[in-house]
Lab assay of single mutants.
Amino acid sequence: GATAVSEWTEYKTADGKTYYYNNRTEESTWEKPQELK
């Protein structure tokens, strides 16, 4: 299949934890999204 550009962006909180934000759905998660595995 075609490689889609991930909708997920990786961010870090002030205390250094990583989370992921989906630009399309406006969803955020602590877990690494399936698309990034």
Score class of each variant (00 low, 15 high):
1 G>L: 13
1 G>A: 14
1 G>S: 13
2 A>P: 13
2 A>E: 13
2 A>F: 11
2 A>V: 11
2 A>D: 13
2 A>R: 13
3 T>H: 13
3 T>L: 12
3 T>E: 13
3 T>Y: 05
3 T>D: 13
3 T>A: 12
3 T>M: 13
4 A>Q: 13
4 A>F: 06
4 A>L: 11
4 A>H: 13
4 A>M: 12
4 A>E: 12
4 A>N: 13
5 V>T: 13
5 V>N: 11
5 V>L: 13
5 V>E: 14
6 S>R: 09
6 S>L: 10
6 S>Y: 07
6 S>H: 10
6 S>T: 11
6 S>V: 09
6 S>P: 11
7 E>D: 12
7 E>R: 03
7 E>T: 04
7 E>W: 06
7 E>N: 06
7 E>H: 08
7 E>K: 04
8 W>L: 01
8 W>I: 02
8 W>K: 01
8 W>Q: 01
8 W>E: 00
8 W>H: 00
9 T>Y: 08
9 T>W: 08
9 T>Q: 10
9 T>F: 10
9 T>G: 08
9 T>P: 01
9 T>D: 05
10 E>T: 06
10 E>H: 02
10 E>S: 04
10 E>K: 04
10 E>F: 02
10 E>W: 03
10 E>Q: 06
10 E>Y: 03
11 Y>K: 14
11 Y>F: 14
11 Y>M: 15
11 Y>A: 07
11 Y>Q: 09
11 Y>L: 15
12 K>A: 06
12 K>R: 14
12 K>V: 14
12 K>N: 06
12 K>E: 07
12 K>I: 12
13 T>L: 04
13 T>C: 13
13 T>P: 00
13 T>Y: 03
13 T>V: 02
13 T>Q: 04
14 A>H: 10
14 A>T: 13
14 A>G: 06
14 A>R: 08
14 A>V: 12
14 A>F: 03
14 A>Y: 03
15 D>Y: 05
15 D>R: 03
16 G>E: 03
16 G>I: 00
16 G>Q: 02
16 G>L: 01
16 G>S: 01
16 G>V: 00
17 K>A: 06
17 K>W: 05
17 K>E: 10
17 K>C: 15
17 K>Y: 09
17 K>N: 08
17 K>R: 14
17 K>G: 05
17 K>D: 09
17 K>L: 10
18 T>I: 14
18 T>H: 06
18 T>N: 06
18 T>S: 11
18 T>L: 10
19 Y>R: 05
19 Y>Q: 04
19 Y>H: 04
19 Y>I: 13
19 Y>P: 03
20 Y>S: 00
20 Y>G: 00
20 Y>Q: 00
21 Y>D: 03
21 Y>F: 09
21 Y>I: 05
21 Y>N: 02
21 Y>E: 04
21 Y>R: 04
21 Y>W: 07
21 Y>S: 01
21 Y>Q: 04
22 N>Y: 01
22 N>E: 02
22 N>W: 01
22 N>S: 01
22 N>M: 01
22 N>D: 03
22 N>L: 01
22 N>T: 00
22 N>Q: 02
23 N>F: 10
23 N>K: 11
23 N>H: 15
23 N>Y: 11
23 N>S: 15
23 N>V: 14
23 N>D: 10
23 N>A: 14
24 R>W: 13
24 R>M: 11
24 R>S: 11
24 R>P: 03
24 R>K: 10
24 R>I: 15
25 T>Y: 02
25 T>V: 02
25 T>A: 01
25 T>W: 03
25 T>K: 02
25 T>E: 02
25 T>R: 02
25 T>L: 04
27 E>W: 01
27 E>P: 00
27 E>G: 03
27 E>D: 04
27 E>H: 04
27 E>Q: 08
28 S>H: 14
28 S>Q: 11
28 S>W: 15
28 S>P: 02
28 S>D: 03
29 T>D: 02
29 T>P: 01
29 T>F: 06
29 T>S: 11
29 T>L: 08
30 W>S: 08
30 W>E: 09
30 W>P: 07
31 E>G: 04
31 E>L: 07
32 K>M: 09
32 K>I: 12
32 K>S: 05
32 K>G: 04
32 K>F: 06
32 K>P: 09
33 P>T: 02
33 P>H: 02
33 P>L: 02
33 P>M: 02
33 P>R: 00
33 P>I: 02
33 P>Y: 02
34 Q>W: 10
34 Q>V: 13
34 Q>G: 10
34 Q>E: 15
34 Q>K: 09
34 Q>N: 15
34 Q>A: 15
34 Q>Y: 10
35 E>G: 10
35 E>N: 09
35 E>A: 08
35 E>H: 09
35 E>W: 06
35 E>Y: 07
36 L>M: 11
36 L>T: 07
36 L>I: 10
36 L>P: 06
36 L>W: 08
36 L>K: 06
36 L>E: 07
37 K>F: 12
37 K>M: 15
37 K>P: 09
37 K>Y: 14
37 K>Q: 15
